[in-house]
């Protein structure tokens, strides 16, 4: 599922962002420009991240984030993978009073149905791979990111 939904236009390395909201805003604009989400998506994504943050701590103080929101804001399911030039602080899913330093973000735009679960499951399978996380963060081009993701997905 991840492979089918992966588009090079939605893989963006080394985004210059200072805050989690910068990252969400960048991703929402990108998805909107491709006609994949409604204009309401950005607000919904940011609001959801505020109420239920998605930062996941993996190594001490460092991790990934998997922002997502309700299917009603999505036109066509898509996934965007973004790395940031410098670490950005996300609040933690399991403890919103704590933050985690993030350079790798998987933004899930999910329409209704079974798809949502499959895609999240694959995403979880991906973020559990330390070597993939570091190669994505080091990747300089969308093509590099796609190659690393494809390689990892074939092993899942």
């Amino acid at each position: 599922m991840f492979l089918e939904l992966m588009r090079p236009q939605l893989l963006v390395p080394r985004v210059s962002a200072r805050t989690a909201e910068d990252v969400l805003s960048f991703a929402a604009d990108l998805l909107l420009s491709q006609g994949l989400v409604k204009t309401s998506f950005k607000r919904a994504l940011v609001d959801r991240e505020c109420s239920f943050p998605t930062g996941l701590e993996i190594d001490a103080g460092q991790g990934v984030a998997i922002p997502h929101t309700d299917p009603e804001h999505v036109i066509q399911s898509a996934i965007s993978v973004i790395t940031t030039e410098a670490p950005v602080s996300f609040f933690r899913m399991d403890d919103p009073s704590q933050s985690v330093s993030v350079r790798l973000v998987f933004i899930l735009a999910l329409s209704e149905g079974r798809l949502q679960v499959d895609l999240l499951q694959e995403t979880v399978g991906l973020i559990q791979r330390p070597e993939l996380r570091s190669s994505l963060i080091e990747a300089a081009t969308p093509e590099d990111m796609a190659r690393h993701l494809q390689g990892a997905l074939h092993q899942i």
Partner: peptide, 23 residues
């Protein structure tokens, strides 16, 4: 639970985030 439970419950709560990160 993957998220913090803001109320006290009479039953044990297990943090499920390690099942997402694998750690």
């Amino acid at each position: 639970s993957t998220t913090k439970i803001p109320v006290s419950l009479s039953v044990d709560v297990v943090n499920a985030v390690p099942l997402l990160t694998g750690v």
